[in-house]
Design a protein around this nucleic acid. Structure first.
Lengths: 204, 204, 204, 204
DNA sequence: AATGAATGAGTATTCATTCAT
DNA sequence: GATGAATGAATACTCATTCAT
């Protein structure tokens, strides 16, 4: 890579990191582009050389952070599989969900940031809109897990959709507001519900 | 009621109706208090005599409209029960959900307005924050339905929470964006999931 | 007039005067609304209560100042008529033009400001768009002069149009840039041309 | 010409043509140097190797296009003279004016572009500022026409100045806004005025 | 109770120009 | 000669909220 391209890459990364920090600290709306630029040590105009506007960079960050969350969960799962041997498909899903929920519980600013945006729309975007990025292709990961499972699954995309919406929308409320109960109290009910959604999609 | 109180009530209602119309037409953010006041035929200062700010009136409207939605669904259910005789608890829940989804599908502006706000937080608000309002107390309605059911239910509030979050968040995406499938395609999967969530909460 | 209305009138006038001063000093483009507001001692938002934008206030000023110019010229003419007795129609027109040119020569900032805007478009606007203003109705003034003249005139509006465009556009160049000659050198040629344009429109 | 000079010439011409196209399409103010450069296929910095700024290239284009307009009118006149034999000086002037007006009426974007800039200042510029250009020297053309005329003319430059300002400023308004009348209605009045301006300058 | 004039904080975006490579 | 990344100045406009009448 030429020196100038390397410089551009560094500058882009610096802006991304700075923006993430500010978004987490003060929220997207309360963060101005002027602040991001200044904190990143570039001129305001430079921001626009790399990103279209504040929402462009926000979406890129959400995709990236969601991807990180899934990647970490998948890695934890893989590690467990190596240690403990194979486990049923449902358990793998629950394991990953639990891993993600715990991380979000630890890092509630991140949850507020991705908030309800961790939904199907952003998911689809994360898959289709960033072929150039280093982010993982979730669909592929799930498809592999499904294939690896001995039990065939009907309408896997729909199943994932139902699970993601249920989990993200209930845990958002439980983690941030403890409404109607705190996340630990919610977990058993939630996981039971997830299990039964999976059960429905098992080909008999 | 004194004449002056009646006048105040009329003014309040006029502001509420005007705001609802504008929120549906242009969205909450694009509607200014100046617009609401002018369209309602009162001075800007007058708005503040009745509501704290735009979000105060928005929340009151969401509670009210959600309540309307539930009331209509409950009435349709009661009518059906009169005609067709008693039905299982699960079927009653599904019937109401279906009724609400159909209405939101017809009135997508309303869905956009209530949007993801039709969540537990607003629900609780709708119950606690409007003792003076004419809106129905959902909790009571559900409790009555549960009592009327022959089968006892564990953690009914949690069960309702799971169902509402699952239904609202998936049908939002399916109705407005047909993502990942359109609402009619989603329905059978969704209703199956709802049924299995209910099943889990039946005391054996 | 109520005290509050009087206050509004004063505020409006204050903004107008301040804007005029700044436009003359630094030009319209180099003057920001923030500057006008600050110099006029009102908040930025207040500006927008009285004027739509910078071009709104600019147009109002151009109309007003043009009107002043014509009014002063007409008054000078009336005074001369009282002293020296009646004069031919052509001489009256030339007298007014000369009066206006001399004033613009004295006040070149004003000429730069109205510049080539003292054209038919602004004229029509000055007539139609400010019925509420105190500005004179030029058309009426000219029509009266034409009626007062013993000689009937064909297509008076067109004649005035030709004269105004010729005079304004040539004297702009002559006064500000002495191009192709200075204004005093231009005058005899210009007035001869004006006379011959009038001659063409005399009904024989 | 060396090959490298030819390349430079091509690049310059490409920038000029691109800028003209964009100026006509979107206006000078709405066209940025970045756009011109990109559309011309050169780097932004390269623009500055050939032109001082946007107004430099604008002026060069106005001079060039005005020159084209006059050249075409002169050629049409010459052709007519060959076919129909000699004609009076006034008729030649009117013929050229008519030719130019018709062209501007057909190509109103060009009129908007040249707009009121087709004035004495740019004229003088066109003569003095582009000795290197291929554009015609208008003064010379007019001087030749005047010489060719049998009637001697007083102050020819002043006469041309009066005529150009009168014609350009009235036809601008008539063509673009049909104010106060459309161009065809204006023509007879305008041409009569031009004739009488010429008459005044004939040596008796 | 009602009014509505006044306030002024808050921010995205463009673009001419430079200069290191 | 050519490039194009970086700069940073410059500015309109909205709108929630207050408070004197």
């Amino acid at each position: 890579m030429k020196k100038i391209d390397l410089n551009k890459q560094l500058k882009r990364t610096s802006i991304l990191n700075t923006a993430y920090k500010l978004f987490i600290e003060k929220g997207v709306n309360k963060t101005s582009i002027a602040e991001i630029s200044q904190a990143a040590g570039v001129a305001k105009g430079t921001f626009y050389l790399y990103f279209r506007d504040k929402y462009d960079i926000r979406n890129k960050l959400i995709s990236h952070e969601s991807s990180q969350l899934f990647t970490a969960a998948k890695q934890a799962l893989d590690k467990k599989l190596v240690n403990d041997g194979p486990m049923p498909f449902e358990d793998m899903i629950i394991f990953m969900i639990n891993n993600i929920i715990d991380e979000l519980n630890r890092n509630q600013s991140l949850l507020t940031f991705i908030s309800k945006n961790l939904s199907w729309g952003v998911f689809k975007n994360a898959l289709t809109a960033s072929p150039s990025s280093d982010d993982v292709d979730f669909t592929q990961v799930f498809n592999e897990m499904i294939k690896a499972s001995d039990k065939p699954i009907k309408d896997p995309e729909l199943m994932i959709f139902l699970i993601i919406e249920l989990v993200s929308s209930t845990s958002y409320s439980a983690i941030l507001y403890k409404e109607p109960v705190d996340i630990e109290t919610l977990k058993p009910h939630l996981y039971n519900s997830v299990r039964s959604i999976i059960d429905q999609h098992l080909e008999l």
